[in-house]
Amino acid sequence: MQMKAGATIGIAAAVVVFLIILISTIWTISTYNKLVKLEEGVDGKWAQVENVYQYKIDLIPQLVTTVEGYQEFESSTLVNITALRSRWMEASDDEEEQLDISNQLDTALRSIILTYENYPNLQSIQAVSDLMVSLESVENQIKVERMRYNEEVRDLNTKIKQFPAVIVANTFGFEERSYFESNFAPDNP
């Protein structure tokens, strides 16, 4: 009888252990999948940011040819913008470098927009004002995609830091992502 009771306890213990392992495995897998999905969301939104940023880079040659004929725009700014564009394209694999260049580019473009706003005679030139509409739109698109990227990053970072998901995150090497800040904030006209 004693043997039998011991065996029953043993089986019960084994079942409990088995259940614990099963549940924690299922939980680990589902948490892992959630984190993968969040990471993919972040990557997808980053691709979208790059995409709209590329529109802006593509606008630069057209911008320079259109405005270089008008003396109101400083030629040094235009040369600078062209140089920054080439550097940005060369740095296509280096996100940090691209971010740095994009901030410099934004400062330069800001001065062009300010010039445009300060000279009403420029505003009456169709080609120039069309370009400014395109530029304004692309800036807004970047702002929107950046906001959505940051929202995804916030979701991922929050999940990674939360207990108990933090255990899975640390085990499988999920890392916090950095937010995309920019010093370019176009004002309302």
């Binding site: 979208q48 709209v52 509409v133 304004e136 739109s137 807004n140 698109q141 929107v144 995609e145 006209p189």
Partner: peptide, 10 residues
């Protein structure tokens, strides 16, 4: 969905 493309004015 939209992504901020368009125009605006006063």
């Amino acid at each position: 969905r939209s992504g901020g493309s368009g125009a605006r004015g006063r």
